[in-house]
Measured scan of single mutants.
Amino acid sequence: MGFKLLSKLLVYLTASIMAIASPLAFSVDSSGEYPTVSEIPVGEVRLYQIADGVWSHIATQSFDGAVYPSNGLIVRDGDELLLIDTAWGAKNTAALLAEIEKQIGLPVTRAVSTHFHDDRVGGVDVLRAAGVATYASPSTRRLAEVEGNEIPTHSLEGLSSSGDAVRFGPVELFYPGAAHSTDNLIVYVPSASVLYGGCAIYELSRTSAGNVADADLAEWPTSIERIQQHYPEAQFVIPGHGLPGGLDLLKHTTNVVKAHTNRSVVE
């Protein structure tokens, strides 16, 4: 069995187990497998329904001669939608809004960016022009300005110390501490036991640490421990890039980060 097929099978099995364990909360999309990078042309966006009122959005972007996937989250909030992270750029984010209108038909009224990198804030200006209120932590807003990236308009308070959590509509926002970046936030959907790890969490097929220019490698494993301790009931975990899975993604990420750190020390 090929690795790609095995990865998709694991996603399907995880979703099936969740649907059985929580039949009222989960209505997993039966329309197909989780979209992969090879299936999404740059400039297009796919939506994948995880649970009743919960979707991931998947886009792709060219970077350094390669094409990478990027995940975000959409959560229903009454007759409105909360968006977590842009679709990595203005063109993708405009396509995301169009796809949401086509498939869901509810307005996106608020959006949260989970850290300051372009795959999370690139497209904020498109959201703002569409009347979406954009939010991020003060740290993310400051770092985005320093980096020359787009800056969300509103500040999220109460997320300055490791372990801080605040309720934001249908989700809980959690600051686990520094990891992929010093400002990275985690998003949890309690009604569906869905954990969105953003770039602080890796997919299972990833074996290298990737972009760690703004990471705190020493603190990252401790931050992941905080996530595990705060959300032990999480059933569906979405990484910032690639295929979702279960809580095993947290341990896998820790292993990859520690291996990278150990290699760096040896070198």
Rank of each mutant, 00 (worst) to 15 (best):
L195H: 01
G246N: 07
R110W: 14
L24I: 12
V237W: 09
K91S: 06
P107Q: 04
V37T: 08
N71W: 02
I201N: 00
A144Q: 11
S223P: 04
T114R: 01
N149L: 08
Y196W: 02
A130T: 08
G246P: 03
T134C: 13
H180V: 00
P138E: 15
S113F: 04
G78Y: 11
F116I: 02
Y135V: 11
P244Y: 15
A209F: 15
P23T: 05
H252N: 13
V146Q: 11
S161Y: 03
I104N: 13
G197V: 06
N92K: 12
V126E: 07
P41K: 11
N255G: 13
D119H: 00
S191M: 13
E147N: 10
A59T: 13
D248W: 08
S22Y: 15
E147F: 03
R263C: 05
A192T: 08
T86L: 11
D125I: 08
V45D: 06
A178M: 10
G78I: 13
P190V: 04
H154C: 14
E33I: 07
S113W: 02
V194R: 01
N255I: 15
L143Q: 12
V171Y: 01
D164W: 06
E233P: 14
P221G: 11
P23F: 10
I74T: 13
R167Y: 04
A165G: 05
I224Y: 01
A59K: 15
L13Q: 02
T134K: 01
N71R: 12
S223E: 01
H115M: 00
G122P: 02
V112A: 13
V108I: 03
D248E: 07
D214P: 13
G89E: 12
H260N: 06
H57Q: 09
Y202Q: 03
V146C: 12
A179K: 00
Q103F: 15
N211L: 07
D164V: 05
P232A: 05
R141A: 08
Q235V: 05
Y202V: 03
R76D: 14
V266Q: 11
A87D: 01
L6I: 05
F116R: 11
G78P: 06
I104S: 03
D119W: 00
G131I: 15
Q229F: 15
S56A: 06
K91V: 14
T14D: 11
D183E: 10
H154Q: 14
A94L: 12
G177D: 00
S137H: 03
Y12R: 13
S155C: 14
A15F: 03
S191L: 10
L143I: 11
A144R: 12
T182Q: 06
V67I: 04
T261P: 15
R142H: 04
V194E: 00
S161H: 03
D214C: 12
S113P: 04
A129P: 07
D77A: 09
V112G: 02
G158I: 14
A215T: 09
A90I: 06
H260P: 07
T109L: 13
G169D: 07
A21D: 14
